[in-house]
Design a protein around this nucleic acid. Structure first.
Lengths: 126, 126
DNA sequence: ATATATACATCGCTACACTATGCTATCGCT
DNA sequence: AGCGATAGCATAGTGTAGCGATGTATATAT
């Protein structure tokens, strides 16, 4: 693994917090379970969200505690029991809020970039 | 000041990592010191980046360790000594990389949102 | 039989943001 | 002269999240 950000496509730090939004967004489409959620995230993000069990399950528990999701067991005809998560009204609201925050943050970042573009050089006013 | 995220301080997570990019971006304009950097970030972000000393200084130390910044003391005619940070070539490169990653992540997020927009309702296929 | 995929759970490590605190220097006010 | 506010850097302590590792268990493919 990389120490801070050196390589890799996208790093821990960048994904932080964002993963939560992504989970809510996917759950807006309908209820699903952890394993499937992980695969969906991995597939649709082109591998950027390569979420581990040790990350995803605790995240889902926290979201359930917050009341954004409700989980329930389903026993399929064959295979292991799955815990399906459905987004609540509160969670739906959160998804909207967090997405708005994300976009605002994005706008702020781009503004700051624009403010730096002109004088990127000529910095050493020592 | 943008209070979103259910009050419970989840925007912390969202800022994580992003703050690092923001610091690099501001330093692209020229060298500056911690206190001023904090104010610049707060002002230009409209309060989103309300960075605390306990966050900023360790972050600057880490970046210096990584070789993205070089710090040096300057004694002003009046006032306390300031530690000015200048971005290195390596840091400049990092800024570009991280910004590209940030934009890629942003694009992925918007794609997933678009994929959820149609069936945001009608989810409860319990 | 054995490997792989499915599926959930949790311990333990590490990193990091944040609070709180401490220190010193200067400025403005009275 | 006294005092609070602001400037400016530093760090110990706390809480929490990501994630690797590991465990459990079933189904399918080779």
């Amino acid at each position: 693994m990389l120490s801070l950000w050196g390589g890799a496509s996208l790093d821990r730090e960048l994904r932080r917090g964002t993963l939560g939004i992504a989970v809510l967004i996917v759950l807006l489409r309908g209820s699903t379970y952890g394993y499937d959620l992980a695969n969906t995230l991995r597939r649709e993000s082109g591998g950027i969200f390569d979420v581990k069990e040790g990350t995803l399950y605790p995240l889902l528990y926290r979201m359930e505690d917050e009341g954004w999701l409700v989980g329930g067991w389903k026993i399929p005809d064959r295979g292991k029991p799955r815990r399906y998560y459905r987004i609540t009204e509160k969670g739906r609201h959160q998804a909207g809020e967090q997405l708005a925050s994300w976009r605002e943050l994005n706008a702020v970042m781009e503004l700051m970039v624009a403010g730096s573009e002109g004088d990127a050089r000529g910095a050493e006013s020592s």
